[in-house]
Design a protein around this nucleic acid. Structure first.
Lengths: 215, 215
DNA sequence: GTCTATATTAGGATAGAC
DNA sequence: GTCTATCCTAATATAGAC
């Protein structure tokens, strides 16, 4: 993470906003320049095109999400922290949603991102499996053979495509909070069928937590 | 579904193949013309551009998938038919995968497809909920409040994005059969936690079924 | 670093002969 | 219906002055 010039910083910031709100396909490098009132030539001086900007934005995202994901590794999470953990992951993804809404075409267009993103998916899957293992060890969750692994994979898929699906279905269309909340709720609904011996009081906590977040 | 000229038919067929194998972003209308050895001008005589072709392809897909989805409505499915049902849906989607791999950008570029696709999602969700209700009535499945509805929604999301996720993760990369099989398997793994009183013998059947399909 | 002006290209689109 | 030839446009990219 090298220090950036003021202008570079502003370009990235402006680009991220435009891409998230208008979508990758709608935005050209000229648009980015226009919005921040600099010339296209100037923008090209700093970044040689839209894709270079996106690559740099992704690098930023990667460092942040890696930090977030490693939370339960660094120190085991307390019960309620698990829900919050899911929220934080979603918020991070939301801040970078243009990428998740155009995954296929972006990874095709900027091939060097593909292996990086694949590694991120692996990391996420591992993080989820670790989290589930913790709850299994404390007998809050119970799994049959393979169920834990496949659930962690499904959760990874869910987090990757929830925003795209939610926008399509019109879930939380006008309210990001709702969209994220529903995403967490749907994730949790995949976990609760595996509740084990110690999870009864958990249920109370969870209900409270979910109510809080809505209000 | 009006009758089409020989050439129109061939254009659609060629386009579908190219789009599925190379991806929407890679293929231009000129490519389609080139592959079938006709001139771009000629292609334009039949279809005014790539997006018109895609719209027509989607219309075809829509009629087919609607037919498939309505299966459990027309006549309630026998036990094993439920698995096969999921397979058939996936196969239909696979035949039109370019669309599912670039959903966001395609629906942005061809706005009239958006409401159509949204209706398709609703239909799929309803079909799944119906199927689950059947298995609930026969006490093969058991659900708590809301669980059935949210599961049907999750299954819809799963079917919509599985192919994209599988390609990213490299699941069944070289073998469509494997990719689809894993998709069905993952779908089923969301259902089995809800097994009810009558589903023990079901488990046997399912295991057999899954083994068959792999071999 | 920033500007204006211009070049390049790829893809979408049409005109008119056969 | 099909071809060849050409045009148009939007987006990328660079050159050279300030």
């Amino acid at each position: 993470m090298v220090a950036r010039s003021k202008t570079k910083e502003k370009i990235l910031h402006t680009a991220l906003g435009l891409l998230n709100n208008e979508g990758d396909t709608q935005i050209t490098s000229v648009d980015i320049a226009a919005v921040m009132s600099i010339s296209p030539g100037n923008l090209y001086y700093h970044y040689k095109g839209k894709d270079v900007i996106i690559a740099e934005l992704f690098a930023d995202f990667e460092t942040e999400i890696r930090q977030v994901l490693s939370a339960p590794v660094t120190k085991p999470l307390a019960l309620e922290d698990n829900w919050i953990y899911l929220y934080i992951i979603f918020e991070e993804i939301y801040d970078f949603r243009f990428f998740y809404l155009n995954l296929t075409s972006l990874l095709e267009r900027i091939p060097e991102l593909r292996p990086k993103f694949k590694r991120l998916l692996s990391l996420m899957q591992t993080a989820f499996e670790l989290l589930l293992s913790g709850l299994e060890a404390s007998e809050h969750l119970y799994f049959r053979t393979d169920e834990k692994h496949i659930l962690s994979e499904r959760l990874t898929q869910h987090f990757t495509y929830w925003l795209a699906y939610a926008s399509l279905r019109g879930i939380g269309a006008k309210n990001p909070k709702t969209m994220i909340h529903e995403g967490v709720y749907t994730a949790l609904s995949q976990i609760t069928p595996h509740w084990g011996a110690n999870s009864e009081p958990y249920a109370e906590l969870l209900r409270d937590f979910l109510d809080e977040q809505v209000g």
